[in-house]
């Protein structure tokens, strides 16, 4: 079995925003997309996906619309709103800054101190 990593707190929202920023997705689609783009490396708890989606919708970062899915069944599709796009940009930049800083800190060699 492949090794998976638990999500850091607060990162699920960011990943969902990223997933729906590429194309409108239903909840299950978000799950598949996250598995796919993380190359199955991240463990997405299925149960906490929906509360996160509803929270983001309530915060008007994503919007939802009912449409028919691949096999003609009705499904709720999520898209990124303008506010969501802005939030994603901010969070991505913030994440990049932090991970760069942490990486730099962790890669520090004794002679650099």
């Amino acid at each position: 079995m492949r090794k998976t990593t638990d999500l850091l707190p607060g990162t699920l929202d960011m990943l969902i925003l990223k997933a729906v920023s590429l194309k409108p997705l239903h909840g299950y689609g978000v799950l598949l997309r996250l598995k796919q783009i993380s190359a199955e490396a991240l463990a997405i708890p299925q149960g906490s996906l929906y509360p996160a989606l509803y929270r983001l919708e309530h915060q008007k970062l994503i919007s939802a619309e009912w449409a028919s899915s691949e096999n003609n069944r009705r499904a709720k599709y999520y898209t990124l709103t303008a506010a969501g796009r802005k939030r994603l940009r901010e969070r991505t930049a913030g994440w990049n800054r932090m991970s760069a800083a942490i990486a730099a800190a962790l890669n520090t060699k004794p002679e650099e101190v």
Binding site: Q46, Y54, R55, H58
Partner: peptide, 18 residues
């Protein structure tokens, strides 16, 4: 099983939607 307790999820969804 993997989805988790449906009642809990629903309760959390309601709360998330205010």
């Amino acid at each position: 099983l993997e989805f988790g307790g449906a009642n809990t999820v629903q309760e959390e969804c309601r709360e998330a939607s205010g």
